[in-house]
Design a protein around this nucleic acid. Sequence first.
DNA 1: TTCCCGGATAAAGTCATACGATACGAACGG
DNA 2: CCGTTCGTATCGTATGACTTTATCCGGGAA
Lengths: 240, 240
Amino acid sequence: MLNPDRLFGQVAHKLAVGIIRGGSAAGELLPNEADIRSEISVSRTAYREAVKFLTGKGLVEARPKSGTRVAPRESWNLLDPDVLAWHFEADPNEKFIRDLFELRLFVEPSAARLAAQRRSADDLARIEAAYRGMTVNPPYAEPTVQADLSFHEAIFEATRNPPLQCLAPAVCATIQWSLFLKAPDDRFFFTASLVDHERVLDAISQRDGDLAAARMSGLVIDSLNSTLRLLAGRALENAG
Amino acid sequence: MLNPDRLFGQVAHKLAVGIIRGGSAAGELLPNEADIRSEISVSRTAYREAVKFLTGKGLVEARPKSGTRVAPRESWNLLDPDVLAWHFEADPNEKFIRDLFELRLFVEPSAARLAAQRRSADDLARIEAAYRGMTVNPPYAEPTVQADLSFHEAIFEATRNPPLQCLAPAVCATIQWSLFLKAPDDRFFFTASLVDHERVLDAISQRDGDLAAARMSGLVIDSLNSTLRLLAGRALENAG
DNA sequence: TTCCCGGATAAAGTCATACGATACGAACGG
DNA sequence: CCGTTCGTATCGTATGACTTTATCCGGGAA
């Protein structure tokens, strides 16, 4: 994850949010020197390292003489935790949220199935501990959110499939954002979500793969529906 | 993608392959200056930019005064095209291949279902053109491989889900590697694969999501089986 | 008129150097 | 023997100069 303490990290963050918000397909960035001098006063070193950092994530591509351009969106690594975080900060539109939930719907049930089949005792203990963390803390409080994230992350770890585990950060970012959204007062959904989680835990505990997958599907769908409802409510607020 | 023309790109490649092959969990990297001076004669700028590039992909983490360390494998972005390519170059072990095919098995059928439901006429034309490209060229020739990759990529594009599309490069890298492996003489598999592809194309053409998903599952499973058989044969060769 | 070639040019790439800050360890003193 | 302090190693940042490369444009040839 991006370290905001370092100067180059701050520059990278600033550039990234601008790029994502701007959404230019192949627009050229400001000339290096002008950017450095006018916008932010930072050395060439820090700026270049920030650009290289973003290059690694597919956000920009620099070519001599032609300038540093914003890369086409297809080459952005949308599953990268940093890129995802920047998206939520810059432009959390509904389409993007739906797409992410759709991805969850494809991946998480399968992950749950694998977890049920392959979990060790330790894996189960971690998942169960995370679930307990969700029950003992107040709804939507910080520890509860962390426990929720841990729950899903632990399931991914239990799959013993490293490439698959790479999707965990993306899933967690989605969950975190949706929980942040519904902070106010959705008590009813919270208890329903708790039940969903418990049922998944139970299936994994029983080593029943199909059951775990089905219940995880239910969990994701419930989560999506409540998020969309909140999003719609918020849209109404903004309109009225 | 990493540009091998630039010096920092070569340094990044060298470092990355070394890291992945070495597989040290949290081992400290060589001291900057010693590395620069002895191994490769390159300026500090180029080295640092390479490190920043790798930092963006989660391979290393540099902490002030403590040294630049190899990041724990969980934070590597295994789905990144560059990281994947480095893996195939450095350490293409069977477990890794199986994991990637497992991921394909979870993701591609769902993608095919979406593609069948949402495809435009243009999408279908692209998929069909790719399929034709596979039939008119000789088996396992370069154009055939490219057509195969285009086939799967076009399906991902037809899903209209950008985050999901980010998995396309990973899928394509897996396919490319497995095709490269079976270059010699697996005529039988090739025709079978062709049939698999045609059936998927047909289902997408009919807008039958469930059928497309089922047939894509079959395609991936067939591909996995033939790849594993080749891998086993190769292992026997090495042993004998 | 059109096409091709080559030089001017601008921007990124690379290099060398310097200074600052801090984590880690070693030496020193109590 | 333990704690403090000081030195060293290493990363972060800054700066200026030089190199490489790709685009653009103008001139000459077909």
